[in-house]
C-alpha cells in the first residue's frame, strides 16, 4: 500500500487484496466505494471513533484483483493529510479526532485508559492505539507535520509511538506577573523524554476558534494581556 499526500489531497494506492477504510465525509465525489455496515474493528476504541464519525457508516475501497488508486480531497481549503506507516508490532497512539482512514491490515485497535497523575495534568485519559502493521491517514484543518521536537501543546498532538515516555511540564514565564498568572493557569506542555517522530498539527483549529468573541474571551484579553502581560 502506498499513500501520497499533498496538502489537501491524498492518493491511496492499494495492492491486490488490500482494503482501506475511509471516514465517510472524505469520499465526496468518489463513487466506487462500499458501505461498511458492520464497523471495522468493532471493539477497537468504539466510543472515541463514534464520537468523531469514524466508527459507524465508514466506507471502504477494495483492490480485488489489480492495483487500485483512490484520490480524496479534504473538506477544508487549507487542510492537510498525512499518512503514517506503522511497522509490524509497533503501537501508535492516534488522535481519533483527526482520523481520516486506516487500512484493514492492523493487528488490533484498542483503547489505553490511563489515570496516573501525569494524565490528569494533560487532561487526557483515553488513548486509541493502533497496533501495526498498517497505514493510517490523518486529516486536519491546519497543516500536520512530522516533528522531531520534544515539547508540544497536548491538544496539537496527532500521533506518536507509545513506547516513548513523556512528562507534563508547566510553561516557564519570565516576568513576575506572568509567573503569578501561571500559578492559576491550566496550560501544560507535553514533553517527550525520548526522541522520535511526533505528528502534530501546526495549530489546534478547534481551540483557536473556541470562545472567540465571547465576553469571557474579551475580558481575559483586557485583564491579562493589557495590564499584566
Amino acid at each position: 500500500m502506498n499513500i501520497k499526500t499533498e496538502a489537501n489531497t491524498a492518493h491511496v494506492t492499494m495492492d491486490p487484496g488490500e482494503r482501506f477504510f475511509f471516514k465517510g465525509s472524505h469520499l465526496r465525489g468518489v463513487s466506487a466505494f462500499n458501505w461498511s455496515l458492520v464497523p471495522p474493528y468493532p471493539f477497537g476504541s468504539p466510543i472515541a471513533r463514534a464520537l468523531h464519525g469514524c466508527y459507524f457508516g465508514m466506507k471502504y475501497v477494495d483492490a480485488d484483483t489489480e492495483t487500485r488508486g483512490v484520490a480524496i480531497t479534504g473538506h477544508h481549503p487549507r487542510g492537510s493529510f498525512i499518512s503514517i506507516d506503522v511497522p509490524p508490532g509497533h503501537q501508535y497512539y492516534v488522535n481519533a479526532r483527526l482520523l481520516a482512514g486506516f487500512s484493514s491490515r492492523f493487528e488490533k485497535i484498542h483503547t489505553h485508559i490511563k489515570v496516573a497523575p501525569v494524565y490528569w495534568c494533560v487532561k487526557k485519559h483515553f488513548f486509541p492505539v493502533f497496533t501495526g502493521p498498517g497505514n493510517i491517514l490523518l486529516y486536519s484543518a491546519s497543516p500536520i507535520q512530522d516533528s522531531a521536537a520534544l515539547e508540544f501543546q497536548p491538544e496539537r498532538i496527532a500521533a506518536f509511538n507509545i513506547q516513548r515516555r513523556f512528562q507534563a511540564v508547566p510553561p516557564a514565564p519570565t516576568t513576575v506577573a506572568s509567573q503569578g498568572i501561571n500559578v492559576f493557569s491550566r496550560e501544560t506542555i507535553w514533553r517527550f523524554l525520548d526522541g522520535g517522530q511526533t505528528f502534530v498539527e501546526s495549530h489546534n483549529f478547534e481551540e483557536a476558534h473556541a470562545g472567540k468573541g465571547s465576553l469571557g474571551h474579551v475580558l481575559k484579553h483586557i485583564l491579562l494581556l493589557r495590564f499584566l502581560g
Binding site: Y93, H112, K114, A116, P117, V118, Y119, C121, F127, V129, F160, I162, Q163, R164, R165, F166, Q167, A168, V169, P170, V183, F184, S185, T188, L193
Partner: peptide
C-alpha cells in the same frame, strides 16, 4: 500545579 512545577509527577507512557 506545584507538583508539576517541581517535577514531582513521574513520567509515563501511553
Amino acid at each position: 500545579r506545584l507538583a508539576l512545577m517541581r517535577g514531582w509527577i513521574k513520567p509515563n507512557k501511553v
